[in-house]
Computed example of a mutant assay.
Amino acid sequence: MKYLVTGAAGFIGAKVSEVLLKQGHEVVGIDNLNNYYSVALKQARLSPLLQQAHFRFIKLDLADRNAITELFAKEPIQRVIHLGGQAGVRYSLENPLAYADSNLVGYINILEGCRQHKIEHLVYASSSSVYGLNQKMPFATSDATDHPISLYAATKKASELMAHSYSHLYGIPTTGLRFFTVYGPWGRPDMALFKFTKAILAGEAIDVYNYGNLSRDFTYIDDIVEGVIRIQEQIPTANPDWDARHGTPAQSSAPYRVFNIGNGSPVQLMDFIRALEESLGIEAKKNMLEMQAGDVHTTWADTQDLFEAVGYQPKTSVQNGVNAFVSWYRNYYQC
């Protein structure tokens, strides 16, 4: 099978590409290698992939319509795993236009490529952020997601709506995955675990928002990638019996599905920090701060539908996952 993986130099995209290659598939990876965070880290993720005979990397911006059109025309791509786009909730408060370019314009370019070339299955990254002001726990795909509280979340909600329109109009099978706080080796420097580790090892204080009264459904990278790989094999089909008045919004009469992909077990932020302190053998200095705009108090994934679809069941404990990250961090930065 020949796959297009967007965001191939990213945290999840590089790992997904690695697993696909190990399974014997061919992967075309694209990424614009922007400087939102360290380009050197992105290149380091790509380095082992570039040594694989069945991997080809193209530096390409999703918002470049002509380049995306040319890519689909030249490559006999069968399936697309779309993990590219501008990440980060807080950055969307500072630079909203980056999200419009990448997550909206870039995404429609991918959808058009899938339409024009009859792609078998488009799997794309959504986010737990779409649940916004929802209070009900755990977050279920049957819940409404009409009140996002950041532009990042709004673009992810938009990606689901855009996917549905293409599934409905053109019969393109699409599956959206709402990721819940992914962490682990090779993680992004703008994520809490990376920032905390860097600060603690430098003897600096860490910023703890809402005075530590937050919880997140932390999900280890290997568990996430296993879910992505499993779900891309489950191609949605049209369901003429589905009824918008009674059916879940995670399905449709079109070949369209949306799933949560998370650990299904939220962890208090202070417990997460204690796991990191234990792994490092250092007690963190803490700046206890107010809640930040765009953040939510709790994320908690109901993953029952994903389990029923593909048997998805995360296996990595927070302590083991944090230990793996710390081991990678110390080795990568020689500290």
Rank of each mutant, 00 (worst) to 15 (best):
N287D: 07
K74E: 01
Q268K: 09
P255W: 01
H25T: 15
V208A: 01
R274M: 05
G212F: 02
T6E: 00
A87H: 06
M270S: 04
R65P: 09
Q43K: 14
L269V: 02
G113Y: 04
V123K: 00
P138S: 10
E160C: 12
A284G: 14
S279F: 00
R65E: 15
V182T: 14
S150I: 06
H297C: 11
A199V: 04
V16L: 04
Y36A: 09
I81P: 10
R178P: 03
E18V: 15
G132N: 09
T145R: 04
A254Y: 00
T175L: 00
I149A: 09
E283W: 03
E233I: 04
L169A: 13
G171T: 14
I231N: 12
T298I: 08
Y332M: 09
A154K: 05
E278L: 02
I12S: 01
G13Q: 06
L151H: 11
S150A: 14
P148T: 15
G311F: 05
N109Y: 01
P185C: 05
V228G: 12
Y209A: 07
T69L: 04
D31K: 09
L60S: 14
K315A: 08
H164R: 07
N134F: 06
N320P: 12
D61F: 03
N213G: 11
R330W: 04
A244D: 12
G184Y: 01
P240V: 03
F259T: 12
A202Y: 03
E70V: 10
Q319N: 10
Q23Y: 01
V19P: 13
L111Y: 09
T141P: 08
R216T: 08
L60G: 13
F57I: 11
N109C: 14
A238F: 01
A154M: 09
M162I: 13
A8F: 00
Q23N: 15
A250N: 09
E308C: 10
M291Y: 06
Y333L: 15
V322A: 05
G85T: 08
V28T: 10
G187V: 14
R79A: 08
